[in-house]
């Protein structure tokens, strides 16, 4: 079971599929649809949590990879970045440039413009993004806070 979410990473319906399969199997075994439904939903909850957890960890890995370079990079200089996931799906890379330092009494932060290329083909999907990173002790961490709740929309 643990392998399935890993392979289908990013597929948020894995939990529903697992829930449906287990629920149907249990319902068939007990002939009670409520028991089947309950077991099915329970399975969906567990598998969903696992998929989301793995997805978040992978995204955090990519954020950490970019943020780690922010502190060492002089302002205005470009450098490449890349992430090699343990599971080699969605290994992205690109360039990053620190464009501004945000000095404040609380922390030193920097604004960074970065490109993301998914793959190495000429027509690989790519994008340009802007974010911030702040120094937290010896490390630099991704610092862009969440959107205003009024803009959550389909994100939630």
């Amino acid at each position: 079971m643990l392998l399935v979410p890993l392979v289908l990473i990013g597929c948020s319906s894995v939990g529903s599929i697992a829930g449906a399969v287990v629920g149907a199997a249990t319902g068939g075994a007990t002939t009670n649809p409520v028991v089947g439904y309950a077991v099915g939903i329970g399975t969906k909850v567990l598998v969903d949590q696992l998929v989301f957890y793995i997805g978040r960890r992978r995204q955090q890995g990519e954020q950490d990879e970019i943020a780690a370079q922010v502190g060492a990079l002089p302002i205005g200089v470009s450098a490449p970045w890349k992430i090699d996931h343990d599971i080699p799906i969605g290994n992205e890379h690109g360039d990053m440039t620190v464009v501004r330092q945000i000095d404040s009494p609380l922390a030193t932060c920097r604004e960074v413009v970065f490109t993301v290329v998914d793959g190495h083909a000429a027509d690989s999907p790519r994008g340009v993004f802007v974010t911030t990173a702040c120094q937290q002790g010896p490390r630099w961490k991704w610092a862009q806070a969440e959107p205003a709740t009024a803009r959550w929309g389909f994100l939630q």
């Binding site: 990013g10 948020s12 992978r58 995204q59 993004f129 806070a145 959107p147 803009r151 929309g153 994100l155």
Partner: peptide, 13 residues
């Protein structure tokens, strides 16, 4: 702060 670009939603949704 506005929402992240949809391309960067990843596991957020």
């Amino acid at each position: 702060s506005a929402e992240p670009a949809t391309e960067r939603w990843g596991s957020l949704q």
